[in-house]
Amino acid sequence: MSGIPVELGLLLSLVLFVLGLIGVLVRRNLIMILMSLEVMLNATGLAFIVAGSRWGQADGQIMFLLILTLAAAEVGVGLGLALQIFHRFQTLDADSVNEMRG
């Protein structure tokens, strides 16, 4: 029998995801936005692990592996973009990049 109820695991995952979402919406520093995105991806991975542990299947951990590769690729490209933005605008403020007229 499982020592940890599946509802609690999913609740923790939900709380972490919402915290990451709040971070993405509130913070304007690009590095902090990327870090909050990491928290959100991590929370979804936690949900998969909880479900995999509930059913005793390996699929949850495989999904976590795929999320891990996604996070690695996303961070690489995102940090490259942050470097470019800092290089061009000399700031990391996400609002300063707003150059579209419309």
Partner: peptide
Amino acid sequence: LLGAHFAAVLEVIIYAGAIMVLFVFVIMML
């Protein structure tokens, strides 16, 4: 604690290790 030992090891090595090192590099570069 959930019994996913392999995922726990990967979380520490890749997330808390490799990806955070990328963040540290970029913060120091900027």
